[in-house]
Amino acid sequence: MSFSTMLSSMGEGMLRSCAIFILTILFSMPLGMIVMFLRRSRFTIVREITKIYIAIMRGTPLMLQLLMWYFGPYYLFGMNIRGYRFTAILLGFSMNYAAYFAEIYRGGMETIPVGQYEAAEILGYNKVQTFFKIILPQVLKAILPSVTNEIITLVKDTSLAFTLAYNEMFSIAKQIAASQTSFMPFVIAGVFYFAANYLVAFIMERIEKAFDYYK
């Protein structure tokens, strides 16, 4: 197998990896915001349930969670799971990452001095305005480094989708490596992950710079 054939067969896998990555970011980041609000709810029961949810998401392997999301509906409710595979993968990744993002957001919220809320209240901002105009921009600045970390982890975690027989890039690399008795696919995979994460780091650095105008 020539180098270019190797690249092109892995190319499709790269697209699949990117699909998981982009869709997970798209779903989990706003979802994390909702989880964070539930986690900070003034109702104890909501807070406690959210805590348990976060504990499970963070305390069990993502691989196990993927299996649960996919096979759960069949084993628990006897549902037909044909064609549900990709949905389960997105569910698994998004729900897991939402938990992590929620905790990052929560940490960010706690860095905001209470005086900011009080100033907003005195000036007459309502709760929604206070959050989106005053608090959120400052939270975003505070959490950017942790978010970058989490996103980079996600790039590498996409390989777990193979647990549910989703042929992302790394599983194809393993298949080619096995059939060709070659190390080259792993080198390509490594370069792909590195390049993807370099891009992530580059973009995040740009965003951080954009927030640099104030302290």
Binding site: G115, A119, I122
Partner: peptide, 12 residues
């Protein structure tokens, strides 16, 4: 209106 000891201007 209220002026705070710590100013509480919006830094952004």
């Amino acid at each position: 209106g209220l002026v705070f000891q710590q100013f509480n201007l919006f830094p952004h």
